[in-house]
Design a protein around this nucleic acid. Structure first.
Lengths: 167, 167
DNA sequence: ACGCTAACTGAACGCGTGTTCATATCCAAG
DNA sequence: CTTGGATATGAACACGCGTTCAGTTAGCGT
């Protein structure tokens, strides 16, 4: 709280003219983050399953790379939430995971995808995509575009029907 | 500290007959965890690349599933380490990641694997495997064996030369 | 039985935390 | 010019943390 206050150029007590308490602040930060995520992922949800999946992979990497602080807070402070607040945040995150699971399901029905389990595959993909944030550095060997391409290629192979890799 | 003491059935001060401070305790916990990891992964490093990779996938999932507390601490308390302690832990973790990267490299040279980038692929695979700990529950729909099978299938597809999936 | 050492207690310390509140300051409306 | 409401201050609070230490206890060798 005092760090936030200093960064805003104010004393700690003054923050409480704008937030009831820290719990609410964290909860609203996480909720806003996830609502923005849901809003921004919208355009990725149109078209055939493979195109949707490719858009999703690239989007997820870019979106989370642009918001390292929000991702950090969402990960680190999740356990400090009230049970009710935790439930809401968890629900929003699950809905996001379901978007991917439904995408995989559609791809399987289209005959384009093949996965051992749609839910498990969605968890695996999201974990692997979110993991980019832990190692990718802007000034490294690879550009973000490179990484997006590589991850899309790996995901495509992972879920494609045997032997068909689109690009 | 007081929680640990209570769990051991002792007062907090008594702990300091065994550890100099909390920092050292955390550091030793993490180092022991990673040394055990390196020791246990050994048997996975023999044979042809595909067999090694399969063993590695199954091993990583099982090993981390059996040690949720150690995994949690290694993740959560990493930032509270002294720079020197952090460097040592980070080094051990990087050596583990390199084992996988070298395995992928060998597989590529054998003509069995194809990945966009060995280092990136190793980060992706490890993130996806470690992610199992965040959602898998013993009493859920799937057994750990099921999950191991599914993840091996996904990883195999992800790194296999186009169109060849072993099982 | 005695004494020595190792181990444990219980209280305290300094510090950092989230939060509150009486007081002061500013600025626009009457 | 006065006044009232919004906003900021700075000091204090209660609490939890890691850590220390003088004093107590327990157990073993002689």
């Amino acid at each position: 709280m005092r760090v936030i206050a200093r960064e805003v150029g104010v004393q700690a007590g003054a923050l409480y003219n704008y937030i009831p308490d820290k719990q609410t602040l964290l909860h609203e930060l996480m909720r806003d983050h996830l609502l923005e995520l849901h809003e921004a992922v919208g355009p990725c949800l149109v078209g055939a399953a493979p195109a949707r999946l490719e858009a999703f992979v690239r989007f997820h990497i870019a979106f989370h790379h642009a918001r390292p602080d929000a991702v950090f807070i969402a990960y680190m402070e999740l356990r400090n939430l009230t049970p009710e607040n935790f439930a809401e945040i968890e629900g929003l995150r699950r809905r996001y995971e379901q978007l991917l699971a439904e995408m995989l399901h559609a791809g399987v029905e289209e005959g384009a995808f093949s996965v051992p389990d749609e839910k498990v595959a969605s968890m695996a993909i999201i974990a692997m995509l979110t993991g980019v944030n832990t190692w990718f550095r802007e000034d490294g060997r690879l550009s973000l575009g490179d990484v997006q391409n590589m991850y899309w290629q790996m995901v495509a192979r992972m879920v494609s029907v045997s032997g068909t890799v689109s690009s």
